[in-house]
Amino acid sequence: MSVEDQHDGADHLLDEADVGMLAALGRLVDGADPVPHDLVERSILAMSLALMDAELMAIVAEGEPVGVVRADTAASASTVTFTSALVSVMVDISEVGGRVRLDGWVAPASVCRVELRRADGQVWATESDLDGRFVLEGVPHGLVGLVLLGAAGDAPRLTTPVLEI
């Protein structure tokens, strides 16, 4: 006999034992595999970048964070490289004074608009120079995606996967 055959059509309410078991099961699942605290923020940013009709670049290399001390100010840096069929971007991410600085290089070298988009809707923008170099300074920590406009001639928009800086 299937479950449908056993159902009499009446709406059955949960009793206290059912509610207690479901609550205990919920606590067990939350403890074993909690929902990431930034899941909603990551999802919103990923969807907003995807809706831009942009080609997604792939992460091809990620450097280990390096700790640096300069004049009593602790800083750290790491390097990430993204690539697509048309262009590659290497970004050096460094932290100084609680903010983030991104030094980037577009290859092949070209002038293009570079936007850093945060999950909260803030956008930092700059333009790469003739050598493909760009800098974004004073960015708060959080989830971001880079968008390149006009890289490699009349190329489509290019965007990186979401990353945390």
Results as ranks from 00 to 15, higher is better:
D131T: 12
G132P: 06
S128A: 03
A151Y: 02
R118I: 08
V29P: 04
P140K: 01
E127W: 03
T83D: 15
S128Q: 00
V114I: 03
A77K: 09
P65Q: 12
A155V: 08
R157W: 04
D131C: 12
E115H: 05
Q122L: 12
L45T: 07
H12Y: 10
D33W: 13
A32G: 06
G104N: 07
D38N: 12
R27C: 03
A119K: 07
G98I: 06
L163Y: 00
V147T: 04
D33L: 12
A75E: 13
G138M: 00
E95H: 09
V111S: 11
S88I: 09
D53Q: 10
G145N: 09
E62F: 07
V111H: 09
R101F: 08
P156T: 04
L158R: 02
L49H: 05
M90K: 01
R101S: 14
A17T: 12
V29R: 07
D18R: 01
E115Y: 02
T79M: 14
H12A: 14
A119S: 13
P108K: 03
M90E: 11
G104S: 00
M57C: 01
P34S: 02
I165T: 13
V91L: 03
G121W: 00
L86H: 15
T159D: 09
G20A: 15
S76H: 00
M90P: 01
W124A: 06
A85T: 15
V69K: 09
I93Q: 00
A152P: 00
S43Y: 04
G104M: 02
S84T: 10
D8C: 09
A74S: 02
